[in-house]
Simulated scan of single mutants.
Amino acid sequence: METIISLPKAPKVIKQLTPTRALLEIDKLYPGYGLTIGNALRRVMLSSLPGAAITSVKIKDVSHEFSTLPGIREDMVEIILNLKQIRFIVHGDEPQSATLKVKGEKEATAKDIKTSSQIEVVNLDAQIATLTTKNASLEMELNIEKGIGYVTVESRRRDKQETGVIAIDAIFTPIKMVKFDVEDMRVGEKTNYNRLIFDIETDGTIAPDEALKNAADLLMEHLKMIAKPAEASIIDGEPIEIKKEKTVKKETVKEDFDGAKMKIEDLKLSNRTQNILLINHIKTVANLLRLSKDDLLDMEDLGEKAVKEIKKSLGKLGLTLRQEE
């Protein structure tokens, strides 16, 4: 009977649809893991990746968001909606300020925003307003902050704002769209393994593959905390001791062997064999011991010669690969 959950291949970009949109594929997921991992990563990408956005604006001669300005086609509501679409890369964690001053008959775009060296405007062609007369002018001060997800004005607890400052709902997330599809694929004799395909579109402040990696890193940090031993609980001020069940040691499993915690690099394998293992997320000897010879041969570019090399290195430590049932 199978007792080990095999690990998938590393993600790879299979098609770059646009500079900000790509298809990424994860192969050889254990049956059922495509939906489990796909849904988790999608939710994290949409809700938890950091970004930067305009959180408030002060426009000359405008006291509230329902005002209008002479010589400007858009009203304040439209202008604020346009400001929400401007994407920034902010270096540092402190709030930053920027200004916009335009005069005459022209289109005001994000390219007209004057920023400090701490701020980069990504979508320079984003439209802000249309000035329709030679005497028209538009001046504004922008406050730009970093954050996570979508944050409404009501949820931001602030001191009373300066007169004329209009707070804006902030779209911090750098993700515009994420969807995924799960397909069955053959691994050895089994045909029910999963292939996970992500379709990711960002706002240009981060690449699609980087967004996937950051989401995975964030999930891993949470799972590492969950994997830690449970601490004593407290009920009514009194600590409750959590008893741990004793485990029975098995001679066939070398869990107590310190060498099983060694890194793959410590096996002194050839660079080619070592790189193939690392690409497939086999980073420790403990990971390697969970695999059989057939599992290794399923890895792309890893053949009999490399398996023989791995067995020899493990043999020097008194270890062996998992035996097929």
Rank of each mutant, 00 (worst) to 15 (best):
E78V: 02
G104S: 10
T152R: 06
K106H: 05
K114N: 11
S155Q: 10
K134L: 14
M76F: 05
L142H: 04
L49P: 02
L17G: 00
G149M: 08
R43G: 00
D112Q: 07
I89E: 03
I144W: 06
L124N: 01
Y33W: 15
A22H: 14
I79W: 04
R43T: 08
A53P: 01
N135M: 08
L131E: 12
I79C: 02
G147K: 02
T132G: 06
I148R: 05
R87H: 08
G34H: 10
E107W: 02
K58N: 06
T18L: 08
K134Q: 15
I14V: 14
L131K: 08
L17F: 05
Q127N: 02
L69C: 12
M45R: 08
R21V: 00
L100S: 05
M140N: 02
E25N: 10
T18W: 11
I72A: 04
V153S: 02
L100V: 15
L138M: 14
S47H: 09
K134M: 13
I86T: 00
S47I: 08
S48D: 12
E105M: 14
M140W: 02
T18K: 14
K15D: 14
L24K: 11
E120P: 07
A52L: 10
T109R: 11
L138P: 14
E94T: 09
G32Q: 03
E141C: 00
Q16S: 12
I86F: 05
T152D: 06
Q127I: 08
L83A: 02
R43P: 00
M76V: 03
E105T: 08
R42L: 04
T130Y: 05
T68D: 06
S97Y: 09
T99N: 12
V77M: 13
N123R: 04
L138R: 15
A136E: 10
A129W: 01
I89L: 03
I72F: 01
S137L: 00
